[in-house]
Design a protein around this nucleic acid. Structure first.
Lengths: 346, 346
DNA sequence: CTTTAGGATGTTTACGTAAACATCGCCTCG
DNA sequence: CGAGGCGATGTTTACGTAAACATCCTAAAG
């Protein structure tokens, strides 16, 4: 009875331009023109098409569009965790900057921070619909021999040491550490210890370097570092060692969360901050102004890192060529209330 | 001299199955079979194809694949900010659970937490390559009349009130608030105040409700709430009001960060925690065990929320139908050291 | 030795879109 | 009044893949 080509009842079929075109009595190409906002369509025709689109519930098929145009307008972000303080701030900035440029952001989680985990994530990359990649993992986790970024895919490596092969956007970790240490020196401290991040972290290593260099320049003793894993809990554990060192009057912490742990260790040991112990953090995370006392720290401009990363990617996408080199985002010293001049002891 | 069809030097053309097929001396379909791990290809042929793939640097084109298969294997996550404590944890969990199921996650940032910002994000959704959507914005920001999720796209609304229209995964905020308040009651506190989150937040509202109900049930006075904006700084500001209330011996904070601010306010006012003031937080964020003293709080299982969200999406994808309903993830009380029995005053 | 089944591989086609090119009609200008 | 030009629209084609179908060959069975 009915037409041989009755609309199937089953799984909702995609409404295509052809369907809209038929309904509107125009060609598919005209539908395409309306869909893409091309100007050379007279209002009357446009109305017709829009009406048909609306009635049929037309939505452009991005797969087809991507196939035709050769671009997804999507940037992949390879990352281990969103939990580390910096990561989600960087990713937030990346996704906002990307959106502003009309790009979406796809997360590619690395399930384990191991060689194989990273390899797996890079493997998935092959099958993912991205035009470019931002890598936010500790790149030294990558065995260069095994993990190769797909050639021809514009890539930016964030906050890590990627050698000369890639475009890198990095925060000036070492300088931040130097600023922090210098500040403590200026306050007259002579025993300035460091609560470091994990050995596996490149950023942690650079912060250790900056601290150490500054002390050596000043001709001061470089005491052993104590390591945490970035967590506040580890900062507390490490902090117990530090507060037990009565010579030590100042601690530079590799991040704010560990500084928070140190606060607790100091409180338990009866050492007041900043009167008995000066503390400088790193990151300038959102909570620090409300620490008790508010934490003197080093501000990291994650937003700028995100912006530059996207800018670098867009540049590569535009010119079509990798441009190895490192873009350094400066850090800024933020003075709050957790540091004070050393008290003349004895 | 050379063949008329020399490989263009210009923009790197995509290596297609056809290219590989020609090189390997097989058909494109066989390349497809090898690419997809189909078993009925004899090892010798497979080797040939793999070798050709390798030599040419073949990478499957996901746009074409998506067009053919009608699926991107991608879930879109609409969110305002990654900064709010819960968000990035939920998104992390979603992306991991999604990856486990072979799905990628695309972030769709809402640039402003306003009606128009949300509308814009939903607009972008139309052109994005996603099979399903998880919405992690305060849904009441949406004007139902204006913002309509594209029909036929499986959708899950996370931690928000979406009425009966969508599948919802929600944390049991009210129950968490009740547990927190009950704990304080059991310790003998009779003036228990609430440091609430912003009025615009659904979660904040539910926590207020849970706190209020419990106090009313106990026949206690319900004092005015003081509001913050989730930030530690706002917790400090609001906290100054609360610590000034000498009758008040216990505060239930709508999140951990504001509790941290309250800690500072208490310290400045010379009120010790927990001796003079008991504090309960909400979220069980990573830092809380290292607060000084460690914060008693309500654990939110963000990972479970993420897992259930993905599960619900996969279910919708599988069956092809929306299944409205709410899945409630329980909260858990975590006893640490910031609460103590009320001291007999006077 | 012929037949047949089934495994391995090749050929055709469609997915939905947009660029490139083709057509048509109307307006302007000489 | 005719040529030319241009604006609006239609037609053809290709993007890269995988399902469906077609073919070929080998080996086992009769």
């Amino acid at each position: 009875m009915t037409s041989g080509k009755a609309p199937r009842e089953g799984r909702k079929r995609h409404v295509s331009m052809g369907d809209v075109a038929r309904r509107a009595g125009v060609s598919a190409q005209t539908v395409s023109r309306v869909s893409n906002g091309y100007q050379g369509v007279i209002p009357q025709t446009r109305e017709l098409v829009l009406k048909a689109m609306d009635e049929l519930g037309y939505r452009p098929n991005s797969a087809a569009r991507a196939l035709k145009l050769g671009s997804f307008h999507t940037i992949g972000v390879i990352t281990f965790s969103l939990e580390a303080v910096g990561n989600h701030r960087t990713i937030q900035a990346i996704s906002v900057a990307a959106a502003k440029a009309g790009y979406a952001v796809t997360l590619i989680p690395v399930d384990l921070p191991t060689q194989s985990g990273v390899e797996h994530a890079f493997g998935r990359l092959e099958e993912l619909a991205v035009d470019a990649v931002a890598v936010i993992v500790e790149v030294h986790l990558l065995d260069r021999a095994k993990v190769v970024l797909p050639p021809g895919v514009p890539t930016v490596v964030v906050d890590s040491d990627a050698g000369d092969a890639y475009t890198v956007v990095d925060t000036d970790q070492a300088d931040g550490a130097r600023q922090a240490t210098r500040h403590l020196l200026e306050l007259g401290h002579t025993t300035i210890r460091h609560l470091a991040g994990p050995e596996s972290s490149y950023a942690a290593q650079r912060r250790v370097d900056g601290w150490r260099e500054t002390l050596i320049e000043a001709g001061l003793e470089v005491k052993d570092i104590v390591r945490g894993d970035w967590s506040a809990a580890s900062g507390y554990e490490a902090g117990r060692t530090l507060v037990a060192d009565t010579q030590c009057t100042a601690v530079f912490c590799a991040n704010d969360q560990m500084a928070l742990g140190l606060y607790r260790a100091a409180a338990e040991a009866g050492r007041r901050i900043p009167e008995d112990l000066s503390v400088v953090g790193f990151d300038d995370s959102a909570d620090t102004p409300a620490y008790s006392p508010p934490l003197t720290t080093i501000h990291q401009d994650f937003a700028e890192v995100g912006r530059r990363s996207v800018a670098a990617i867009l540049e590569q996408l535009r010119t079509g060529e990798q441009k190895p080199g490192t873009s350094i985002v400066p850090t800024r010293f933020i003075h709050r209330a957790s540091t004070a001049p050393v008290r003349v002891s004895s």
